[in-house]
Write a protein that binds this DNA or RNA. Sequence first.
RNA 1: CGGGGCGUAGCGCAGUCUGGCUAGCGCGCACGGUUCGGGUCCGUGAGGUCGGAGGUUCGAAUCCUCUCGCCCCGACCA
Length: 479
Amino acid sequence: MARNITPRSENYSQWYLDVIKAAELADYAPVRGCMVIRPTGYAIWEQIQHYMDEAYKKTGHVNAYFPLLIPYSFFNKEAEHVEGFAPEVATVTHAGGEELEEPYAIRPTSETIIGYMYSKWVHSWRDLPVLINQWCNVMRWEKRSRLFLRTSEFLWQEGHTAHATAKEAQEETLRMLEVYRQVIEDDLALPIICGEKTEGERFPGAVNTYTCEAMMSDTKALQAGTSHFLGQNFAKAFEIQFQNREGGVEFCWTTSWGTSTRLIGAVIMTHSDDDGLILPPRIATTKAVIMPISTDENYADDVLLPRAKELAAQLNEALGGLHVTVDTRFDLRAGDRFFTHIQKGVPLRIELGEKEMKSGTVRIVRRDTGEAVSVAMDAVCPTVKELLNNIQDNLYNRAKKFRLEHTYKAETYDEMKAILEEKGGFVEVYFGGTPDDERRIKEETGASPRCMPLAEADKRGKCIITGKEGRLTIFAKAY
RNA sequence: CGGGGCGUAGCGCAGUCUGGCUAGCGCGCACGGUUCGGGUCCGUGAGGUCGGAGGUUCGAAUCCUCUCGCCCCGACCA
C-alpha cells in the first residue's frame, strides 16, 4: 500500500498514478501500453455496465458479440475510416505457424465487420431498425499511454444501429448521447457538456459526431463518450440495403456510439483528492464500511462485532444489496484501518466503539468532506441513505462549480490564447473555421475545439479566426 | 515518430561524472515490545545475479558498444 500520495498541485500525472495505485485499481502490464484492471477497478466498470444495460432495456437495444479479428481489407472499403484508423491498427500476420494470405486487423472499432454482418441480415424495411450493442475490448496502438485514459487495449461498449431513414438515425444518435449524459452525470457524478464535434474532430467516416466533454481537476478536457451519425457512408461501403414499402431498394442510415473504461479515469481525475480516490456512491460497490474499534479483543469480538454485523445486515437490507462491509482487522491500528478505506474512496465510514455503544450511537464520517456526525443507532439506515445521496450530489455540484469557475469567454483569438496560456480551462468562443484552422490553433495554443454545445446550438457570432459567422465553440487542452 | 530523462530490494531513491572495503538509505514487509478514535515509537530481521548481452581492465552498478523496457513533453487518439 502506498503510504503517501503526491499532492495534486505538485505533479498532476504522478498524483493520478498514486491514486490509482493506492486504491489498487490498476497496474501496468508487461505489454507495451497495456494495463491490468484489478478487482477494485473492475468493480467500477461493472457498475457502469450495469447502468448502461439498464438504459438499453428502456431504449430497446440488445447485446451481441462480433469477432476480435477483422479482415484488413474491410477497412479499405470506407476511405476516411481507413485513413483515420490505419496508423493505430495492430495486425495479425501469422497464425498456425504460417504467414496468413490476408492479414487480420485487431479491431480498433467494429463498424466494418458489423456493417458486413448487417448487410447479410437486413433485406426488408421490416428488418429495421437494428439496435445492437457489444461489450468488448479493442486495440489502438497509440504512441503514448496513460492508465484508463489511453491504453493500447481497452474495454468499452460500442453500439451500432441501422435505420430506414436519416431522421431516425439522427434521432438515435442524439438519444444515445442523452443516455450517456444520464449515466455520466447521474451515476458517475461527472458534469458534462454535450455538443457537436467540429469537422476536424469528427469520427473517421462519420457525417456528424456528438460528444460528452468533461473537465478534469487540472482544468483539461476529457471526452467521456461519443455518438456518431454515419449517414449512408458505411451502408454504401458494406452494401447494407433494404427494400422499402414501395418495393424500391435503399441504403440504410447507420449510427455508432461508444464509452470506455476511460470513464473510470474521468471519475478518478474529477473527484479524488490528496488522500486518494473518492467514489460517487452510485458506482461504489462498497458504499459504507463499518469499523468496530477497540483495543480490547474480547470486547471487540463479543460485543462490537455482533453489533456491527447486525448493523451491516440492516443497512444492506435498506440499501438493497451487499454494499456495507465490516472491517474486522483488529490487528491493525485504527488509523491504518481508516486510511485503507479512505484511499479506496469508500463513501462512508461508520465507527463503532465503546463510546458509541454506551451512548447508543455510531459516528459516521463522509469521504468527500471529512465531516463526521453522531447518529442514534435506530436512525442509521435513513441517515446513511441520505448521506449517500448528499455525497453523490455534492461531488457533482462541486465538479460543476469547478468547471464553471474555469470556463471563460473570449472575443478574439489573442484573448483566447492569453486565457489558455495564463489560466487554462475551457474557453467559449465563436468559431466557423476549417479543419486547417483547427490544426493551426492546436499547434499554436495546444488547445482543440472540444465541442459546440447543443444547449446553445443556435447562438451565432463573429468567428475568432475568419471574422465571419461562427458557432459557439469550446476550446481547451484535452487528454 | 521527434525532443528530454530513467532502469540499483515490493515501492521511492543515493552511489555512476573521477572504476576499488562485504552495494547503501527511506518507506513497506516479517518478528518482538510499546502504542491504539486520522498514518505511534523503539528494536531485530528477511529481501539484490545493480534491465539484458558483449567489450575494456588486476578489478565494472560506475567506462565503451549493442539491445530491451519505461517515464515526461510534443504529434496521434476513446
